[in-house]
Each structure stands twice: as C-alpha cells, then as structure tokens.
C-alpha cells in the first residue's frame, strides 16, 4: 500500500532535534532535521544535490549544512550557497525543503506538496506539554508496514491475549464497544466503558487504587498518524460532576504516532501522559517500563506478522469478525486519504 501524501506526520520528539544533524526517512523520503540558532526546526531532503551523499553525515557551520563528501553548503531553506573550487553556484543547486511544525512537543513534517501544507490541520495532543500532566514516552522501530500497527491499536481486544498481566483484564474482551466515525473530519472513535471491573497492574500500581474501578477506553484515531487513547480510571461509581468536572478521577492520555518509514517499516512513537501521581518518579519509571514492555510485545508480534504477510501473494485472504469493526473503519479512512493524495 502506498502512503497517504499531503499529510502531517510526527517525525520526532522535540527533544530529539537539537544542534546535531538528524536524518530520518519518513514515507520513503530521507529528511534531514536540525534546530537553527533561533530554535526553529528545519527539514530538508537528506541527499546532496551533487552526488546524493546524505547531508546528515555532514556538518554544520552556523545555521548552514556542509556536505561531508565535497563540501556543498546549504542554507536552512535548502538552497545551496557555496560549492567547492568555483565561485558560481549552479542555479538549480538546492534540495527540497519540508514544512516543519513543532507543536505539543512533537515535530511534525508535511509529506507532499509543500504549497498545500496547512499547519492548522495538525491534530492536537495538548497533554504532552501541559503543566497539568506528566509524560513518559519512547519510540520503537517496527519492521512492519504501518497498517498493521493501525489494526493493532484499533482493536484493544488483543490486550487480553497479547498483554495479559499488564493492561489486559478479562473484562476488556467482554465490554460493549461503540464505534463511531466522523466522515467529514475523517476520524474514527471507538469507546469501551467498563464498570466495576478489576484494576490491571498497570493502573493499580500507578494510581494506588486498591479496589475495583470504572475504566474508560475512548479511542480517537486521526488518520494517518495520530492515535489517542483517552483512558479514565476511577474508583467504581465515581462519575464526572454535572458540570463535567472530572478532576476526582485519574486520566491517562495514551498517544501513539504511527509514522511510516518505508513500505515495510514504521516508527512506533508511544507516550503516556497522566494527571495523577505527577511528581512521583517511581510511577513515571513504572509506567515507562510497563508501556515499553507492552509496546515491545506488539512489536514482536507485528514483526512476525509482517514476515508472514510479506511472503504471501498480493491480496491475501483475511477474515473479519466483530472485533474488527473499528479497524475496518480506520482502514477505510486511510484508503480514502491515499486515494485523495
């Protein structure tokens, strides 16, 4: 499957990009990122116009990048300002630059026609740099096509099997699921609201709740890249107030950014932002370690699945059942974006 172009993708976390040259392939396009002296993150093609040497293997002189092979020198907008051994710089000497926006602590890059980039269309994840939340996060490279991760995240019934003992409890596989789509905005929602259920270790250890809980899992997928799992954990019976105030409950905003690297590899960015035990470093360490473990369980399974699928002829047979309702909606939205691009 090709990529949805003319879309924003998460390229990195804000803290990943500094003075150093940072090369990363997104949707098959090698891109160089770095932060200029004024703190802005820039992106340009990571291939020198001269002989295609990766610019990320070069060096910086001020805000400029010097190719590590023969010294072509580029401004942050990708235009070449100096070549070795001659004063004339060929007029076509420039590499494409990419629209880049830093928002909610994420570095977003626009893949497609740069003139069509609209930063207002970037989906938000405000918890990630909110002072009211504490976030732990990481990124695991996945040797699998990104659609497999979309399928995986849209169907949480796999928690009971693949993640037993972490986030899975038997109730997750028994609770009604309401899937909704917004056809105009291109969003898929899947909600699962559990009442009076067992608290999985992931939350028992981090919230300190001893008894049974009400647990909400409200998925919001904004294709192609951003997946939000709004998780609410409260002692059973504790409802939000009539004015919508829900500050007595615990909230974890679990965010994934699903960024294709190539057709068969994906960056699996995972983040857990919480509004409870915010200053407790043990809780941070525990949530980071547990979530990473869960993500790696998925990574192992999806890498295996990729190998199985890649070995099959195009158009392999699948069988969808009721648990796949949300995943099918997500696939349809993705296909629509690909057709439009």
């Amino acid at each position: 499957m090709p990529f949805a172009r003319n879309q924003w993708y998460v390229a990195a976390y804000g803290e990943d990009i500094g003075d150093a040259l940072f090369g990363r392939t997104i949707c098959g396009e090698p891109i160089l990122f770095y932060r200029t002296a004024d703190g802005r993150v820039v992106g340009m093609a990571d291939r020198c116009v001269h002989r295609r040497y990766p610019l990320s293997a070069g060096s910086r002189v001020g805000d400029r990048v010097v190719c590590g092979y023969h010294g072509f020198t580029y401004d942050p907008d990708g235009s070449c300002v100096a070549v070795p051994g001659q004063s004339r710089v060929p007029r076509t000497a420039r590499v494409p630059s990419y629209p880049v926006v830093e928002q909610d602590s994420l570095i977003w890059v626009w893949i497609g026609d740069a003139a069509a980039a609209d930063s207002a269309a970037i989906p938000r994840a405000p918890w990630l740099d909110s002072p009211d939340y504490t976030t732990v996060r990481g990124m695991e490279p996945l040797a699998a096509r990104y659609e497999l991760l979309v399928d995986n995240l849209m169907d949480l019934s796999h928690e009971t099997y693949l993640h037993a003992g972490y986030i899975g409890t038997p109730e997750v596989a028994q609770t009604p699921i309401t899937t909704e789509t917004d056809e105009d905005a291109g969003v898929v929602y899947a909600r699962r609201r559990m009442k009076d259920v067992e608290c999985p270790p992931f939350y028992a250890n981090s919230t300190g709740i001893k008894g049974r809980i009400d647990r909400w899992q409200d998925i919001e997928y904004r294709p192609p890249c951003l997946y939000l799992l709004h998780s609410r954990i409260a002692p059973t019976g504790l409802e939000p107030g009539p004015d919508g105030d829900d500050s007595a409950a615990n909230h974890a905003e679990i965010v994934y950014a699903i960024t294709p690297e190539t057709e068969h590899s994906t960056f699996d960015f995972w983040m857990v932002a919480r509004d409870f035990a915010r200053d407790d470093e043990e809780v941070s360490a525990f949530l980071a370690e547990s979530n990473r473990t869960v993500v790696l369980q998925d990574v192992t399974a999806l890498n295996l699945l990729e190998q199985a699928i890649a070995a099959e002829p195009e158009g392999y047979q699948e069988l969808s059942i009721n648990i796949d309702t949300g995943g099918l909606a997500a696939r349809r939205m993705l296909h629509r974006l690909i057709e439009q691009s």
């Binding site: 019934s157 596989a173 028994q174 609770t175 009604p176 699921i177 309401t178 899937t179 909704e180 789509t181 917004d182 056809e183 105009d184 905005a185 929602y189 909600r191 009721n322 648990i323 309702t325 909606a329």
Partner: peptide, 15 residues
C-alpha cells in the same frame, strides 16, 4: 456519543 458530528456512523457491539 461524539458531539458535533454531521455525517457519521455508529456501530454498537456487545461482545
């Protein structure tokens, strides 16, 4: 459940 959706669908499933 999601407010403000003009054109959309809902599917309900009880496992």
């Amino acid at each position: 459940q999601v407010p403000g959706v003009k054109r959309g669908f809902q599917v309900f499933w009880q496992p």
